[in-house]
Simulated scan of single mutants.
Amino acid sequence: MADFTDEDLSGSRLTRVDLSNTRFERVHLEHVELIDSEMYDMTIRGTDLIGVRMHGVEIVDLDIVGEVVKLTVNGVDVASFVQDELDRRHPGRAAMRPTDPDGYRAAWDLLEELWAGTVERARRLDPALLHESVDGEWSFIETLRHLAFATDAWLSRAILGDPSPWHPLELPWDQMPDTPGIPRDRAARPSLEEVLELRESRRDAVRRYLDRLTSEALERDTVPVEGPGWPPPESFPVAQCLRTILNEEWEHRLYAERDLAVLESRSSV
């Protein structure tokens, strides 16, 4: 079995090649052509698909979970249909796109209420199940650890200017390159109470910031923070940073609810 790591294979031509059971990780595919090829039972996770054109294809049982900005199927942009249907299915989802300070505060109120119900649901399970992965996704505990990281990234670092706000239990997304100073301890097994204590401190920080948020502050850009970390040392609209936090909270709660249902079925067997 060939193993290619940290190699430049750009310009390669693969013709009548069998790549079954191949793993591509952190691979850069730009200006790539797939012609008369077969793609069966594939999993694409944590990958950006930008400017991809698929013509003359047969698509059967394609499942897409992610942020869909523009998706054209046979000449029809279906992204808006997907957005409207998700808003219909999940009342409150539209509130995660606020435009003024009161809207951000209302969105956070809703998230706190919804997460309280999700955590209570998790408490009814055997604590060991909260460390279990469902279909290769993060466990419930890991999800909470990641949300603490997201808050520190976009509030503590990007908005408030702390270059290194990380707690040892925080967890960046899996595809993020190892970065000096940012923790990534996937082997840690903290209790639910430990993680909730960390999470509560980060959520309190969001609440304090939103309580004093003004329209003027919402329209500003952040001051770049130097040093390694996430996000990179760039300037971002404050509104974008806050929207990212809201989106992380909203989407990961839905994932958690989905996986808790699976764990509940396991515990009842």
Rank of each mutant, 00 (worst) to 15 (best):
E200F: 14
G66Q: 06
A79R: 00
V223R: 08
V195A: 06
F24V: 01
A107H: 08
M39C: 11
L110F: 06
V65W: 07
G229F: 02
L263F: 03
W108A: 06
R186W: 15
E194D: 14
F24S: 10
L196I: 03
P172R: 01
G181V: 11
H131S: 07
R45D: 11
P101Y: 03
A122Q: 06
V17A: 07
L111E: 15
D63C: 01
L29P: 04
G75C: 02
A188H: 12
W250G: 00
L263V: 03
D174S: 15
E120D: 12
G66R: 01
T99C: 11
T143C: 10
R97S: 14
L129P: 04
W138A: 08
E113I: 07
M42T: 03
E193K: 00
Y104C: 09
V52E: 05
E132T: 13
R97H: 14
D36G: 04
E30F: 05
R53T: 15
S10K: 03
S235K: 03
R124P: 00
D8C: 00
A150Y: 01
P190Q: 08
V262C: 08
L196W: 05
H28N: 13
E67K: 14
R93H: 10
G103Y: 13
G92W: 11
P172G: 06
T214L: 09
E132Q: 13
T15V: 13
R23L: 15
E38P: 00
C241N: 08
R253V: 11
V225A: 09
R45G: 03
L160F: 04
I59G: 02
D259A: 07
R208Y: 11
I159S: 10
L130T: 03
S12G: 12
D178G: 08
L192K: 02
W138D: 09
R89H: 06
L155Y: 06
S268A: 15
R258V: 04
V78P: 07
G229M: 09
T5F: 12
H167Y: 04
S139V: 09
P224Q: 02
D162H: 13
H131Y: 08
L218T: 11
R26F: 03
P172L: 07
V262R: 07
L9K: 01
D152M: 02
S201L: 15
T47P: 02
E249P: 14
R23T: 15
L218Y: 14
R89A: 09
R203E: 15
P168I: 11
R16D: 14
L144E: 07
E249L: 14
V262K: 08
L49C: 05
F81Y: 14
I35Q: 12
R184K: 15
Q240P: 04
M54L: 09
G46H: 09
A217L: 15
R212D: 14
P177T: 08
A79L: 01
M54G: 00
R184Q: 12
S37F: 04
G11P: 06
G66D: 08
M96I: 10
E234C: 04
D185C: 10
Q240Y: 15
L129F: 10
S10M: 01
I50V: 14
E120I: 00
L246S: 03
P190S: 08
W154S: 01
E25P: 00
R203N: 14
P224S: 02
R93G: 08
E234N: 12
D3F: 12
G117Y: 02
L246K: 01
L260C: 11
R23V: 14
L71S: 03
M96N: 06
